[in-house]
Simulated scan of single mutants.
Amino acid sequence: MTLTTAPRQATVTRATLRRNFWRGVWRVLRRKPSRIAGVVIVALFAVMAVVGPMVYPDPLPRDDDALYAPPSLKHPFGTDFEGTDVLALVVTGTRYVLLTAVITAVITVAVGTAIGLFAGFRRGRWETVLMRLTDINLAIPGLPLLLVLTTVWKFESSWEMGLVLGLLGWGGIARAVRSQTLSLRERGFVEAARGLGLSTTHIIGRELLPSMAPYIAMNMLIAVTAAVYSQVGLFFLGVLPFESNNWGVMLNLAVFNGGALTTPAALPYLLAPLLAILLLTLGVVLIVDAMDEIFNPRLREE
Rank of each mutant, 00 (worst) to 15 (best):
A6I: 02
A15R: 14
L17R: 15
R19W: 15
W26Q: 11
V28C: 14
K32L: 09
I36V: 15
V40S: 07
V42N: 09
F45V: 05
V47G: 07
M54F: 13
P57H: 09
L60T: 00
A69Q: 12
P70W: 11
S72H: 05
K74W: 10
F81H: 15
E82V: 07
G83S: 00
G83L: 01
D85K: 00
T94E: 00
R95S: 00
L99N: 02
A101K: 07
V102E: 00
I103F: 12
I103A: 14
T104S: 07
V106S: 04
V109N: 02
R123M: 03
W126C: 03
T128Q: 11
R132M: 09
L133R: 03
L143M: 10
L147S: 02
V148L: 12
K154C: 06
W159D: 11
G166N: 08
G171W: 04
V177N: 00
V177Y: 02
T181W: 06
A192M: 02
L196T: 14
L198F: 15
L198C: 14
P210V: 07
M212Y: 09
M212C: 05
I216F: 02
A223M: 05
A226V: 14
G233Q: 01
G233S: 02
L234C: 07
F235V: 07
L240F: 12
P241W: 06
F242V: 03
N245A: 08
G259R: 10
L261D: 08
L261R: 08
L267R: 13
A272N: 00
I277P: 07
I277E: 01
E293Y: 13
N296L: 11
E301D: 11
E302M: 08
